[in-house]
Computed example of a mutant assay.
Amino acid sequence: MTRTQSLMAMLPFVMMGIIAAADILAGSQYVFLSLLAIGPAFASLVGGIRRTVLIGLIALALSLLLALYNDLLRAPESDLSLISISGVTAASILATAGRQRRERELANVRSVAEVAQRVLLRPVPRRAGHLRAAVSYTSAAAEARIGGDLYEVVTGPSGVRVIVGDVQGKGLEAVETAALVLGAFREAAHDEPDLLGVSARVEKALNRRLTGEDFVTAILAEAHPDGTLTLLNYGHPAPLIIRADGGTAFVEPDTFAPPLGLAVLEVPGPTPSQIPFGTGDQVLLYTDGVIEARDRAGRFYPLADRAHLLKEDDPEVALESLRVDLVAHVDAPLHDDAAMLLLRCRRF
């Protein structure tokens, strides 16, 4: 139970306690008995039907005790209080039943989406060509905000090809779009001679399905054995390069391009960016759920300042350290899915 839920769970008891204390202090001149119905009214916010009934019974008992204390046991004020509390308790029971039904439906939808996502996002190989790879995926815990974050690593004809993307929207529709993107990428990555050909195949597959209002931000990358890295950025957060000597930099695209799936805009695609990527160098590809994660003070996650966490010899251990730090920074359930893919040029 979260801190907010704990506070909401205590609210009915706190309110009834305050009202009872006020009634005792005010004496028989002022009657607060009917206000005890506030307790059962708040009971439907959290918990089950039994808890709501229990709070209603406590409110009735308090009303009778206070009426006895004020010598109002058979007075109209007491009768009105009992009727009000009973009515509000009955309404609260119905509200609790409706909330629990919606929560079960939401949990079922989220469960289906999570299963589909786990099937879709299969584990990446720990070794791919001349690279070592590690992946981390942290789902948003709020409601059914399962997202369309995606990633894949494929060894192609001229190097290791990867994609990291983020589908606009949430839920099963986002997972379906992610499946379309990954299916097209997996097929094209083996066949196309260059990265632009791969992206063109993905774009074509998306444009057959999307309406023009939906889109997918993505980074496509290809690591060549000759020590270079080619990047195509479709409206996605810039990758973070960590050099073997500890230097870090975000690789901004030479030309900004719209996300995939927006061919209707008739805007030219990105120009491939090529950078050195030698032994010991690393590149971190991620979705916006990482850099847009905020702490309780509203500060964004300082990804560049945390690059030192990726110095571990094992890429999986390094990426897990970064994930743990991200969760600790937020200190609450993430509001958006956060996917990270770390590629490291191996030392032979």
Rank of each mutant, 00 (worst) to 15 (best):
I242K: 00
P258V: 06
P276V: 05
V267R: 07
R208S: 15
G247V: 01
G280V: 09
T230S: 06
D254H: 12
G235F: 08
T211W: 12
D254E: 13
E222M: 08
V267S: 01
P268D: 12
D245P: 07
P258G: 02
F256M: 07
H236I: 08
A223L: 13
A244K: 14
T279I: 11
F215G: 14
L262K: 03
S273H: 12
I275Y: 04
I275N: 03
N207S: 15
F250W: 03
A257E: 06
P270T: 14
T279H: 11
L232Q: 15
L240G: 05
V251S: 09
A223M: 07
P258N: 03
Q282L: 05
V264W: 05
Q274W: 03
P268S: 05
D281A: 09
D226Q: 11
P259Y: 04
A263P: 03
I242G: 02
K204R: 12
P237L: 10
R243Q: 06
L232V: 02
G280F: 02
D245K: 08
E213C: 13
F277C: 00
P259W: 01
F277E: 01
L240C: 03
G278C: 04
H236A: 14
P258F: 13
F250P: 03
A263N: 05
V283R: 11
E266L: 02
D254Q: 08
A249H: 08
N233G: 06
A257I: 05
G278N: 04
G235M: 07
R208E: 15
T211Y: 06
L220E: 01
N233P: 07
F277G: 00
D226A: 10
G261A: 00
A221V: 04
A263G: 15
R209H: 15
V216R: 10
T271V: 15
I242T: 04
N207H: 13
A218P: 14
G269D: 10
L229V: 00
A263I: 09
G235V: 08
T279A: 04
P276D: 09
D254S: 10
E222G: 11
E213I: 15
I242E: 05
H236Q: 11
E222K: 01
T271E: 13
R243A: 09
L262Q: 05
Y234E: 13
L262E: 05
I275E: 02
G269P: 13
P258D: 06
P270M: 04
D281G: 01
G280K: 01
Q274F: 03
A205W: 12
T279M: 08
H236M: 12
P253Y: 15
A223R: 14
F256L: 12
E252D: 09
E266N: 10
E222C: 04
T255A: 09
D214A: 15
G227I: 09
F277A: 07
P253S: 13
D254Y: 05
L210N: 14
I242M: 10
T230F: 13
L240E: 01
Q282D: 02
P268R: 05
I241T: 02
T230P: 04
A221G: 12
T279V: 14
G246V: 04
G227R: 06
Q274H: 08
F256K: 14
V216Q: 15
Y234D: 09
G227L: 00
A221C: 13
G269H: 10
G247N: 08
P272K: 13
